[in-house]
Design a protein around this nucleic acid. Structure first.
Lengths: 119, 119
DNA sequence: TCAACACATGAACACTTGTTCATATGAAAG
DNA sequence: CTTTCATATGAACAAGTGTTCATGTGTTGA
């Protein structure tokens, strides 16, 4: 049922079966996009820093900004993105908004990344 | 030893100790950038698809392109990026370049991401 | 040695992304 | 109620990113 495509190389006997099998096993496109969008959250150093901070302790916005030496506005914009991705949540506490990790997967994902980076 | 910064909110007794402790625990800046750069690799759907394919089987460039329905040039550019990140390697086999995962961490990182996406 | 194939690469372009700046909102203290 | 502090948000801009198109390199087989 495989058609010979112009892109495919000239090894039908060798490659067609593998290509077909892998195609059947690939996740849905929606899943792949979701996955890429998830990893995109970890792909910016500002967001990475915020997540690291929140792995240690919940913290209000201005303390995050001060601790990281990044403008309050920049932090706020990134917090918004992280909230939309449901990686963090927040609650009001007096004048402050206290942010915290919304999901324990964050820790395990970052840990796997660290395993790689630290050899 | 903590100085009162203009960005910091007015809760010295409550927040200063936490901020200081977290600051001491944060990884080096270099590590954070490396980590963000690593996750950037997973943050594009084309690269995500390539990695998924290679998780199933090593495969030559044109088969990857055909299987994913993406132009050979686009695939080749992305493969180059993934090689620079040392996530994949390749060997020549006749006319073909066969690509394969260079690192088993790739699997565990993607798996952690999937755990999150699939609820 | 020449043509066909597999892959790589550079330039150009559109698109996305993150920051800054200015300003708005909203709770709280006086 | 007005001011002040903490945070959010919109517009504008610069920088980064991914694709396409055209072309180059390297390998194989005739």
């Amino acid at each position: 049922m495989e058609e010979k495509n112009e892109l495919m190389c000239d090894e039908p006997g060798t490659h067609l079966d593998v290509v077909g099998r892998v195609r059947d096993v690939l996740p849905e496109d929606d899943t792949l996009y979701e996955l890429a969008d998830l990893f995109k959250m970890f792909g910016d150093s500002t967001r990475m820093k915020i997540l690291f901070v929140l792995m240690e302790s919940e913290m209000c916005v201005c303390d995050i900004a001060e601790l990281l030496g990044i403008s309050q506005s920049a932090i706020s914009h990134q917090l918004r993105i992280l909230k939309q991705a449901k990686l963090i949540s927040s609650r009001r506490e007096g004048k402050n908004i206290v942010c915290f990790l919304a999901d324990d997967h964050v820790r395990s994902i970052i840990d796997q990344g660290l395993n790689h980076v630290l050899e």
